[in-house]
Amino acid sequence: MPCISSFYGLLIYMYGDDHNPPHFHINYGGKWSVCDFDGNIIDGELPAPKQKLVSAWAEIHRD
Rank of each mutant, 00 (worst) to 15 (best):
residue 37 F to R: 11
residue 54 V to P: 07
residue 60 I to H: 15
residue 51 Q to M: 13
residue 43 D to I: 02
residue 26 I to Y: 11
residue 19 H to S: 13
residue 6 S to Q: 13
residue 35 C to R: 04
residue 53 L to V: 03
residue 18 D to A: 13
residue 22 P to I: 03
residue 59 E to G: 11
residue 58 A to Y: 11
residue 50 K to D: 08
residue 62 R to M: 10
residue 22 P to E: 07
residue 35 C to L: 15
residue 26 I to N: 03
residue 45 E to L: 08
residue 51 Q to I: 00
residue 38 D to E: 14
residue 8 Y to R: 14
residue 26 I to M: 09
residue 60 I to R: 15
residue 2 P to S: 02
residue 45 E to I: 01
residue 50 K to C: 08
residue 9 G to C: 10
residue 40 N to F: 01
residue 60 I to G: 10
residue 2 P to T: 03
residue 36 D to E: 08
residue 40 N to T: 01
residue 32 W to V: 11
residue 42 I to T: 09
residue 49 P to Q: 06
residue 27 N to F: 09
residue 28 Y to D: 03
residue 10 L to G: 04
residue 7 F to W: 07
residue 19 H to F: 08
residue 43 D to M: 09
residue 49 P to C: 02
residue 22 P to N: 05
residue 19 H to K: 12
residue 39 G to L: 04
residue 39 G to A: 07
residue 37 F to G: 03
residue 63 D to C: 11
residue 3 C to N: 09
residue 57 W to E: 02
residue 44 G to Y: 05
residue 56 A to S: 13
residue 18 D to K: 09
residue 13 Y to P: 03
residue 33 S to P: 09
residue 41 I to L: 12
residue 58 A to F: 14
residue 41 I to G: 06
residue 18 D to Q: 14
residue 14 M to W: 03
residue 20 N to E: 12
residue 9 G to Y: 07
residue 52 K to T: 03
residue 29 G to E: 12
residue 21 P to V: 07
residue 7 F to P: 04
residue 53 L to H: 10
residue 44 G to S: 02
residue 49 P to F: 09
residue 30 G to Q: 06
residue 10 L to Y: 05
residue 22 P to C: 03
residue 20 N to A: 14
residue 48 A to S: 14
residue 48 A to W: 10
residue 54 V to Y: 13
residue 17 D to E: 12
residue 40 N to D: 10
residue 23 H to P: 03
residue 22 P to R: 08
residue 57 W to F: 15
residue 6 S to V: 04
residue 39 G to D: 07
residue 31 K to R: 13
residue 26 I to A: 04
residue 62 R to L: 12
residue 63 D to S: 12
residue 14 M to T: 09
residue 7 F to E: 14
residue 62 R to Q: 12
residue 46 L to D: 05
residue 25 H to C: 04
residue 16 G to R: 08
residue 52 K to S: 11
residue 59 E to A: 15
residue 38 D to I: 00
residue 49 P to K: 06
residue 47 P to G: 01
residue 52 K to R: 14
residue 35 C to I: 00
residue 39 G to V: 03
residue 38 D to Y: 11
residue 62 R to E: 14
residue 23 H to E: 00
residue 59 E to F: 13
residue 10 L to E: 00
residue 57 W to S: 07
residue 12 I to S: 06
residue 4 I to F: 08
residue 31 K to W: 00
residue 10 L to Q: 01
residue 36 D to I: 00
residue 24 F to D: 01
residue 49 P to I: 00
residue 39 G to E: 08
residue 54 V to T: 02
residue 9 G to N: 09
residue 25 H to P: 04
residue 39 G to S: 07
